[in-house]
Nucleic acid binder design. Structure first.
Lengths: 346, 346
DNA sequence: GGATCCTGTGGAATCGTTTCCATGGAATCG
DNA sequence: CGATTCCATGGAAACGATTCCACAGGATCC
């Protein structure tokens, strides 16, 4: 490539490298004259400092690592966007890693991030497997967990309180007359999978609905398992009249197979999904969701991480969730009339 | 943090730093004995080489930069995923930058990537503004353009041949009896915006349909402009009976407002969108799309970039596009009966 | 058996910065 | 006016790796 270094700048400006460096890093011990001449030389040469050398010497890289289970999942895409923007405005660039919901890829990326000496890491862990997460702790790399936590890892985190949203959803379905709610659960090897399942179990018991264990299908947060879940639940001798999916991708799978089975969502069966994805409102009927703010989650995660980097030990943050009722769950179980204009035939 | 360096490894293994380095980088000039002892020391200390120091000396960072206009756009999220996976399997990590459809953020990220001395950059440029793209050229940073090109920038690229897909779509709509097709165009400051508009214009002329300039609305690839476009087109004295949206986000905006206007997609108005997004098939009615393979695009972009890095000058690649007909455009203009089961009322 | 060739190794230079230390000159003080 | 302080500066060490160079010792050649 090329090779314009601080030495060239110093030479052109007629000062020493030390002085050039001081000017460039805003050290106050510089004369106006030196500042001007260095600035002119930088502009003339279009000098860009070598971040590697700078990081090597100063042991700060001004880079953050962000590790998500799957970028194609719109929830994590939004999270990545929110975190990246927050990091950028704090002067950090973001190294985005994608674990592909696999522990080995997560570990590989963690090693890469350690090697690159990022100043901190935000992780939405794939599962409960610690793996190379231990290495982060041992090296005291500032780390924050987001969306999911891991048992045995005592780190600051930003998570969602699933309880409130799920309770609202179950109560809402109960009010519509549903007594058998099918639950398409996330994997029990993730904290969100466990939390949401526990919340569902409690809410169903409180509302006095059927606690038939057959009404629960354990998926893996991928679209295909949503389809499989619907398939299994609909084959029961006494199938559910309402469905609750624990994340957006499984909801997508559920919708897909319900279409194929010829079941009308909102009329033949009610459907509520966890995660508020923008275009869920565009579906026909529009999908009821349990919403939580992914923008807040990303922003706060960066915020906590910056605090950890600064040597503080911030408290974990738990964000609220809340039910948004749309046409997919607006019809009482006895009725068949559309409840909203969006729900009518196209 | 901590401080386990190659010096510690060498000391523990009882060899010199040079030998330790040779073992670690797979240099054949090492004895089996040295290899074993270094390996043991590495395991014992859980040593991770400092990527900065390595990059500083060897002038290779094993990192690629990927700059997209908007990660939340599912097309670019998929592209990022595909490119990232391809890069990973070639031994590169990916630094993902998000320009937010803004030239200043694009320039800022380009400077960051130059500073970090990435080995190469894949850019889906925001618009025609060269900005800091010039700096990439001047420094001879290996660069590949993806999805969009920029006039005056002679770089290898991977793009889509919009012509074939758009021609198919227009012909398909003509076959259904439509004579006035509304076109929601991308911005003319992007190559895709221009290409697709030109293709549409040609296709309409060839099919003998209305070339009324009022049937074209110029949007900006964001959802809001899709809504605005529908709004404008539907106010015409003689509104279109079919719509073609030049990207997925504008299609989302169009669908949203069509719902609000009470127009039934597929019956009252036909709709076709550029970009095949997975969940477009889940809409009711399912959306007809002009599909092109984003996985191929990401993979090939990395491939071309690796060739450029290797000193070759690869040819640009143009990928095909093709129409996928679904229910949103399956009804002849005179009929009102559903053409597919998916299209019936829910 | 002496010259030549490998092979593995240690030591040192190097990459491009930051930062410490010493210095020289100007400014300030009594 | 001599001594102290301050400020801007140049020079050099350091960060943690890679890589060049020299060299020792064993194998190979004529």
């Amino acid at each position: 490539m090329e090779a314009v270094t601080i030495k060239d700048v110093a030479a052109l400006a007629g000062v020493s490298v030390g002085t050039a460096s001081r000017v460039l890093s805003g050290n106050p011990a510089t004369s106006a004259d030196a500042r001007d001449r260095v600035a002119a030389a930088v502009a003339e040469l279009d000098y860009q400092p070598n971040a590697q050398a700078r990081a090597l010497r100063s042991t700060r890289s001004n880079a953050l690592g962000l590790l998500v289970p799957d970028v194609r999942n719109p929830f994590f895409a939004d999270l990545a966007h929110a975190a990246e923007q927050a990091a950028l405005s704090a002067g950090y660039v973001t190294l985005l890693g994608n674990a592909n919901e696999r522990n080995d890829q997560q570990d590989r990326y963690l090693d890469t991030l350690i090697s690159r000496r990022v100043d901190g890491v935000i992780v939405a862990p794939v599962g409960d497997d610690l793996g190379r997460l231990r290495a982060l702790i041992e090296r005291e790399v500032p780390t924050v967990l987001v969306d999911r936590t891991v048992p045995g890892l005592d780190l600051p985190s930003v998570t969602t309180d699933s309880e409130s949203g799920i309770r609202q959803a179950v109560q809402h379905l109960a009010d519509l007359g549903h007594t058998r709610i099918g639950y398409i659960s996330g994997p029990q090897a993730t904290s969100t999978g466990r939390d949401r399942f526990a919340a569902f179990t409690r809410a169903v018991a409180e509302a006095g609905l059927s606690q038939d264990p057959e009404l629960v299908y354990f998926g893996d947060y991928q679209a295909a398992s949503g389809s499989a879940g619907v398939h299994a639940l609909m084959q029961l001798a006494s199938p559910p009249t309402a469905l609750l999916a624990a994340d957006s991708l499984m909801a997508v799978g559920a919708i897909s197979i319900l279409h194929r089975l010829g079941m009308r969502i909102g009329t033949d069966i009610a459907l509520v999904a966890f995660d508020d994805i923008e275009w869920f409102a565009l579906l026909n009927p529009a999908l009821s969701v349990i919403a939580h703010s992914v923008e807040d989650m990303g922003r706060i995660a960066v915020d906590l991480l910056l605090q950890v980097i600064a040597g503080e030990t911030p408290e974990s943050v738990v964000l609220p969730s809340e039910l948004i009722v749309r046409a997919s769950s607006a019809t009482p179980i006895t009725g068949t009339a559309p409840a909203t204009p969006e729900q009518r035939s196209q």
